[in-house]
């Protein structure tokens, strides 16, 4: 890093080091789940409306709600929470492993803060 060249700078598409590579991989997976769900559900609703008109889409009720209301209004926020929980669990495990590897002989602070 001391050299002036920026060729070796880490970035989202060119992560350096094991820690960053793993973190970026998890971020990409989470973002893929996020994007596919948002765009996919809308394309599904659009295709249902275009191809089947009201016939299918208005009769398809799930937990009391028309399917697209349930998918976008109820499921997607829940899916976002699930994605965030998965990300945090991975980050917690990953940071615990990193701590164990790099600070094996250091006494942990009583507050429990490890990052």
């Amino acid at each position: 890093m001391e050299e002036t060249s920026t060729q070796r700078d880490p970035s989202f598409f060119r992560p350096h080091g094991t820690t960053m590579r793993r973190e970026v991989l998890v971020i990409k997976l989470i973002l893929a789940g996020w994007l596919v769900a948002i765009v996919g559900f809308q394309i599904l609703a659009y295709l249902l409306e275009v191809n089947y008109s009201e016939l299918l889409i208005t009769d398809f009720i799930f937990i009391n709600l028309p399917i697209q209301f349930w998918l976008s209004g109820q499921f997607l926020p829940l899916w976002f929470i699930i994605l965030c929980v998965l990300f945090n669990i991975w980050m917690d495990r990953h940071s615990a492993q990193s701590l164990e590897g790099s600070l094996r002989f250091r006494i942990r602070p009583s507050s429990g803060e490890d990052e």
């Binding site: 890093m1 002036t4 920026t6 880490p10 992560p15 350096h16 080091g17 820690t19 973190e23 790099s102």
Partner: peptide
């Protein structure tokens, strides 16, 4: 500057472990 790039690498992304 090299300083801010180094800060990003060391302090923000923790990417110096196994380069």
């Amino acid at each position: 500057s090299a300083a801010i790039r180094l800060f990003l690498c060391r302090n923000v992304h923790d990417c110096m472990d196994k380069q």
